[in-house]
Nucleic acid binder design. Structure first.
Lengths: 213, 213, 213, 213
DNA sequence: CATGAATGAGTTTTCATTCAT
DNA sequence: AATGAATGAAAACTCATTCAT
C-alpha cells in the first residue's frame, strides 16, 4: 500500500510484509485461488523472494497463523484467572473485548482465515486449537465454573456454556460478513451486546416457567 | 458407492448421483481442491458425463445448493406461524429440530458447504440467503416478537435475539467439526440442548443483579 | 427447417439431409469448429444416426464434396466443345453463367468450403481437382486456344489466360464475402461483368502503346 | 530450430519467436488443428511460456496479424500517389512487385492465413481490412482513376477494375498452392506476368468487335 | 539478496465416437 | 433404424516452483 522509503529496505521486516500481503490475498480470494504472484505483487516484491523466505505456499499459511498465535491470550487470559467476586463483571468485560476485537477486520482476519481454510490443513487447525482454543476455552470455562461454585451463577455445565457465550457473537458477525445480513444500522455492536448479555445473564423469559423436558 | 449393474442405466437419476458425489467431494476436499475427475469417479461415471449434465465445475456447486434449497423450511416454518400460547414450547421444538437436523451429516452438509465456499460465489451466497435465511430468520423473529408482545418473553430486540438462539448451536457443531473440540461424550446433544435452553430462557444468573453498563 | 410430415420418413432422403446440414454448419463455423451434434441437430436427427450413414466427421466433408462434384460441368462444359465462330460470345456466356452460379449462395457453398478446408484434406482437394478443375480448366483453355488459332483472339498463353478470366470474379466475390468490401450497390454483378469483359476483351488502354518489357 | 545456448536468454526476442513459430504452425496445420504445444515446441520453449506472453491461442493469431500489418504498404503505396504520366508504367511496377511479394512464402504467409482463418475471427478480418485493404485498394483505384481522367486508360469503373488487376494473380497463386495446378514450369511468374499485362492493357481480342449487351 | 523468465505437472473442458437399448 | 447416454483421449490453460543471472 505505502511505497517503502525509496531505498534502504528494512530487510528484517520483509518476511512480515510478505505475510501481511499473503493474509490479505488469502482472505480476499481464498487460499486456493490466491496466486503466489498476487501475494508477491501485493507485498511489492518479486515472486522469487517469497520463496526465499518461505519454502512453499502452504508454509505461508502456516506462518501467518503461527505469527498470529503467539501473542494471543497472554494478556487477556491472564486476568481471568485472578477474578474475584461476581464473574459477570468479568464476563461482560470478556465479551465486550471479544466483540471489539472481532469487529476489527485486522483482528477478525485470522479466525476468519482459520475457519475457512484450516480444515484443509490439519497441521494449521491443530496449531490453532492447541495455541488458542485450548487456552481460551478452559480459561473461560474455569471462570464460569468458579462463578457457579461460588453461587453467582446457576449450576450448569460450564464447558457447554462457553458456547452460549461465544456462539451469538460468532453468528452475528458471520451473518453480516458472509450474507450481508445485519440489523438496519450496521453491526449495531452496542445494542447487540446489551441484548446478548441480557439474555445470557437473565434469560428470555418474562416469568420463570416450570420446565419439563 | 454401489456399482450399478453395468448396463441398464437409470438415466433419470444420473444428475442427482453426480450432485451427490460432488457434494461429498467438495466437503471432503473443498471446492477448489476437489477435481472434477474425483467427482466423476465417486459417482461411478466418466469425467465427460459430468459435463454432459453440468456446464462447468462452478455449475456443480450452484446446482448442489439449488437442489438443497427448494424443500427447505416449508414444513417446519409453516408451523411457527400458527403457534399459540407460550412460544417457549415452540422454541424448544424449533431448537431441537434444528439441532437434530444439523447433527445429521447429510443435513449439515449444505450449510457447511455454503459457509466454506459461498463467499467465493456471490451468486450462491445470494441464493442461499434469499431462499433459506430470508425465510427462516424472519419466521423465528416473528415468533419471538409475538412472545414478547404477549408477555411471555421479556422485551428485547427480537431480531438480535435470533443470534442467541442459533449461535450456540452453530458454534457447538463447528468446534466439534473443525477443531474436534467436544465435551467428553461426543456431541452430547441432549445435554447441550438442555444447557442451551436453560440459559436461553432463564439466564446464567443465580440471582438477578442490577445491571449497570 | 421444415418439420418433416409427421411420420413416414422418406428414408432415402436422410443421408442427403444430413449432408445439407453438414454443409451449412461447416460453412457457418468451419469444419473444425462445427460439432457433429450441431450437424445432427440441424438435420433434425440424432447424433447416432449421423454415424449410421457416415463413418466419421471427415467422411461427411468428403461426401459433401463428392455429391456436389458429380453433376458438375457435364452440362455447360459440353457446350464449349462445340462452339463455332467467335469464341467471345461463348466466353461471355461462360463468364455470365459462372458469375450467376457463384453469386448464388447454394452454388457458391462448395467452392467456398473447398477453398477453406481442402488443404487440410488432401483427399478432398485431390478429388475436387480431378473432378472439377481438371475438367473445367482444360475446356476453357481449349476454347481460348481455338479462338487464338482461328484468329479471333490474340496469340497468348491460353492456359495462363484462364486465370485472367476467372481471377477477377473470384476476387470480387471474396472481397465481398470475407471482408465485406463491395461497391456501393451490393455485388453489382451486371456492372461488374460489363467491366470485367470490357477489360478482358479489349484491355484497359485507351490507345495501344508500344510495349517494352 | 536452433537450440539457443541453454542460458543467456534473449528475453526481448521471445514473443517474436513465439509468433514466428505460431505462424508456421497455423499455416501448416490450420489454426484449429495446430496445438499450442506444437507452437511451443517449434519455438523451442515450453507451453507455459506461450501463455506468459499471450493470454490465449486466439490472441496468438491476432498478434501475428497485428505484427504483420503495421509496416504494410507504407513504402510502396506512397509512390503510387505521385505517379505522373502514363500509369501503365506504374501499374506494371505495382503488379510486378505484388507478384514477387506474394510468391515469397514469407510474404504470402499472412494473406494466406487471413484468407483461411479470418472469417472465423471477425476482429482479425476487420483489422486486416482496415489496415491493409482499405489503404491499398483506394490507392490503386486512385491510380487507375487518374489514368482514366488523363486519357491514358479507357473510361471504366476504376473500383471494379482493381479486381481485374489483382484477381488473376490471386487465382494463379491459389491454384498452385491449394490444388497444385501450375503451368508445366512451376509458377512461371515471368510468363504469367507478361500474359496478364498483355490482357489487362490490350485485351484478348485480335480485332475489336462490336460489343452488344 | 533479488529478479522474473521459464517450466511442466496438473486441471478443466471439449467432442468425436461408441453402444446398450 | 434410431436414440442419446456414456466414454476417454486430447487440447487449452493455470500456477507453484525453480534457477540462471
Amino acid at each position: 500500500m505505502d511505497k517503502q522509503p525509496k531505498f534502504k529496505r528494512r530487510a528484517e521486516a520483509r518476511p512480515d510484509e510478505v505475510l501481511d500481503a499473503a493474509l490479505e490475498m488469502f482472505l480476499e480470494k481464498g487460499f486456493a485461488a490466491a496466486k503466489v504472484e498476487d501475494v508477491a505483487r501485493r507485498a511489492g516484491v518479486s515472486k522469487g523472494l517469497v520463496y526465499l523466505y518461505f519454502p512453499s505456499k502452504d508454509a505461508l499459511l502456516e506462518a501467518i497463523v503461527r505469527r498470529a498465535i503467539s501473542p494471543v491470550a497472554d494478556s487477556a487470559l491472564a486476568q481471568l484467572a485472578v477474578v474475584e467476586g461476581d464473574p459477570r463483571v468479568a464476563l461482560r468485560r470478556v465479551i465486550g473485548a471479544l466483540m471489539v476485537q472481532l469487529s476489527d477486520p485486522q483482528r477478525m482476519a485470522i479466525p476468519k482465515l482459520i475457519l475457512r481454510e484450516a480444515w484443509q490443513f490439519p497441521k494449521v487447525a491443530e496449531m490453532y486449537r492447541r495455541e488458542v482454543l485450548d487456552r481460551a476455552i478452559p480459561a473461560v470455562t474455569a471462570l464460569l465454573q468458579r462463578g457457579m461454585d461460588q453461587g453467582y451463577l446457576r449450576q450448569l455445565d460450564a464447558e457447554l456454556t462457553v458456547r452460549s457465550l461465544v456462539g451469538p457473537i460468532a453468528v452475528h458477525l458471520m451473518l453480516a460478513e458472509v450474507f450481508d445480513i445485519a440489523p438496519g444500522d450496521g453491526l449495531a455492536l452496542e445494542r447487540f451486546m446489551d441484548n446478548h448479555l441480557a439474555i445470557l445473564f437473565d434469560g428470555l423469559s418474562a416469568h420463570p416457567m416450570e420446565h419439563g423436558q
